[in-house]
């Protein structure tokens, strides 16, 4: 049994390859065989062109912060309240698609839009690895979170 109490994702047949790629520490995202865009979240069809030819493709795990919010102490969903302040972000991967995540290994106040980030594989349970991100050049003020 795990003592991780925060919400966990439950994969489905379409999304499972993404979650499995995180578990292996080598993130993959779908790429459209017709219009070539990278698609996230995983789908059965390309939302840009309708193509069903979506291929799982290794990506760099690098990107930048598209936007963020800093959640003040005691203000997040109940199970997160002891974490505050924490950063919820939308990261835009170098390949062009965006995903929600948290920024780790840096003080919340030092996180800025546009900051270069890279993926961190956060093995929260035996079965689930979440994609988190950290600044490419870590802040000197906080070696770990």
């Amino acid at each position: 049994m795990t003592d991780y109490l925060k919400p966990l994702p439950k994969s489905d047949p379409v999304t499972a390859p993404f979650w499995e790629s995180l578990h292996r520490g080598k993130v993959q995202v779908q790429c459209c065989g017709d219009c070539k865009i990278f698609v996230f979240y995983p789908r059965a069809l390309c939302p840009a062109c309708g193509s069903r030819k979506l291929a799982w493709t290794p990506v760099s795990g690098k990107g930048h912060i598209y936007s963020l919010t800093i959640v003040a102490p005691g203000r997040g969903p109940d199970i997160f309240k002891n974490d505050s302040p924490y950063v919820v972000t939308l990261v835009e991967l170098d390949e062009g698609c965006r995903m929600m995540s948290n920024i780790v290994d840096v003080d919340a106040e030092d996180v800025k839009i546009g900051m270069a980030v890279e993926i961190v594989y956060d093995c929260v349970t035996e079965d689930v690895t979440l994609p988190k991100f950290r600044p490419v050049i870590p802040s000197k003020t906080s070696p770990h979170l």
């Binding site: 919400p7 439950k10 999304t15 979240y41 969903p77 924490y86 929600m100 979440l130």
Partner: peptide
């Protein structure tokens, strides 16, 4: 649900409801 798109790709990160979305 944990298997919805929100459950898989947003809820694990603790976004505080509507306020967090509008804040971003």
């Amino acid at each position: 649900s944990a298997q919805s798109m929100e459950g898989q790709f947003e809820n694990p990160y603790g976004l505080p409801g509507a306020i967090g979305g509008y804040a971003m």
